[in-house]
Amino acid sequence: MLSKRIIPCLDVHDGRVVKGTNFVQLRDAGDPVELAALYDQEGADELIFLDITASSDNRETMVDVVRRTAEQVFIPFTIGGGLRTIEDIRRMLRAGADKIALNTSAVQTPRLIQEGAHAFGSQCIVVAIDARSTAAGQWEVYIHGGRTATGKDVLEWAAEVEALGAGEILLTSMDRDGTKIGYELELTRAVSRAVSLPVIASGGVGTLEHLAEGLTVGEADAVLAASIFHYKEYSIEEAKRYLAQRGILVRGLV
């Protein structure tokens, strides 16, 4: 049967992995290609690189990271951050990425989802949604790395991106990101139920229990985590062993 996925996320700034709290305060966490290869060996199910470099001047740096990663990593990996055109998407896929994630550009140019899905297949178009709670049971879509409110309702946007041909949703709770108090389970579950696409839960994981909750209570298909793995608080193997003990189906290496 299909297993649940554990996905380490690497925020990349100028070709280095960094980790911030609530979208600010960056700390260096290593070389992306080295970390990616390590995660592959440890049994990560997929990887996501988010390029948080502000200017597009350094896009070539990211293409190089993708190219080098593709030579050493043999699990699927996704690239997100600053991709605005079909040509941007094509470059990343050509360099060896399996999927690309659209966030700000998807909101500003929804047709990019459709064109991307048509040109390269839905399976490689991930839409990343940054969500902030506005009232009980309500969330608003934010763009520009969480700086700009869009007035869009998260559940409506999720349904819209599915209709446009997205293959997967990467859902980040901005209220929880970097807090280590756990995923926003109500949000995760609401989006999982609103679409029939796989949903990746993101934002707030601090313990292995949080991973389990995201997959069970949150009904997510995959869980994304950054700092708990980068700083070696837990290994991927420990995470999988824990989830397996909780009766959650995960991929073992043997």
Binding site: L2, S3, Q123, G167, E168
Partner: peptide
């Protein structure tokens, strides 16, 4: 859910 996406045995 379709596509069938992820790791299966």
């Amino acid at each position: 859910k379709v596509p069938h996406m992820g790791w299966n045995s």
